[in-house]
Simulated scan of single mutants.
Amino acid sequence: MIISPSPETLDKLIRHQIHNLFLLDDIENYTISKSLAKALSKTELCFRKSSNKYYSRNGQAFFSIYHSGQYCIFLYFLSRQIFLDDPRNSVTADKVYYLNKSLNGVDLFYEIEMPEIFHLDHPVGSVMGRASYGNNFTFAQLCTVGNNHGVFPTIGENVKMLSGAKILGNSTIGDNVIVSANTYIKDTNIPSNSLVFGSSPNLIIKPRSNS
């Protein structure tokens, strides 16, 4: 993967930003640097599957540390990797998570297992809760995935949430579903290959091609 301007700058930038906000001790600095390579590997896999022209260059995955969407995805993978490497480092993972939230205005908590391949587009104001997410999940700004009475949704593959969409509670979203802008789904199952809009329980569901 091409990293612009460099992996060394990325390492310094992350630790500098976190230190300015929350302070870092020597152990935390080491923990972040130690988890960096694995997080970059996961970021590369995710970016290679993106159709966004800004995520590739000369046939390779491309990561600009000054592209907010790319940096947002990377910071999620880094915070989660720190936690997976050693749950005792949860405070360090918290700091990376809060850096992501502060810079990008998105809530992607490291204990939530996002899929290997997910995409976001101007995700300011979005909150991704403890759902089950299928690969190639995409969300935009002001989207919410959350619980109702402690039950979270199950989301299939190739699901796209447009601006302001919400999926809550005991909902199962099939594969290849587009959740239209400002749609509100609560405790409702949506079949695969659908376009859905409106609000539960009065949703309108239309079939769409799975191509």
Rank of each mutant, 00 (worst) to 15 (best):
F139W: 11
V106D: 02
E116N: 13
G105D: 08
H122E: 01
P115D: 05
I167V: 15
G146W: 09
N100K: 03
S90F: 15
S102K: 10
N104S: 10
D94F: 08
N104P: 00
P115N: 04
C143Q: 06
E116T: 09
V124H: 07
L108I: 07
T138F: 14
Y98C: 04
T154C: 08
T154D: 08
N148S: 15
E116Y: 10
G129Y: 07
S163D: 10
V159F: 10
C143H: 04
G150L: 12
G125Y: 00
L120I: 02
A131D: 00
K101S: 03
I112F: 03
D121A: 09
P153G: 09
K166S: 13
A140M: 13
T92K: 14
G169W: 10
G125V: 05
H149W: 11
Y98E: 08
G156I: 09
H119S: 14
P153N: 07
V124A: 07
S132M: 00
Y97K: 15
N104R: 01
A140S: 13
E111Q: 09
Y97H: 13
N158H: 15
F139C: 11
T154I: 03
R130C: 11
C143F: 06
S126Q: 09
N170V: 11
L142A: 11
C143M: 00
N147T: 05
E157G: 08
G134T: 00
H119Q: 03
I117Y: 15
N136C: 05
M128E: 02
G164Y: 08
F139V: 00
K166N: 13
G125N: 14
P115A: 10
K166P: 07
T138M: 11
P115F: 03
K101G: 03
H149Q: 13
F139S: 05
M114P: 01
Y98D: 02
Y98K: 03
N89E: 05
Q141V: 04
E111G: 01
G134P: 02
S132T: 12
N104Q: 01
T154Q: 11
N135D: 15
D121L: 04
N135H: 07
V124P: 04
F152Q: 06
D107A: 14
F139M: 07
H119C: 05
V96E: 00
M128S: 11
V159W: 12
N158I: 07
S126W: 06
V151C: 08
T144W: 06
T144K: 11
K101N: 06
E111F: 09
V106K: 00
A140V: 04
A140R: 12
Y133D: 02
N170D: 15
V106E: 02
L168P: 13
N170Q: 15
K101F: 05
M161P: 01
Y97N: 14
A140N: 08
T138L: 06
G146M: 08
T92P: 06
T138R: 08
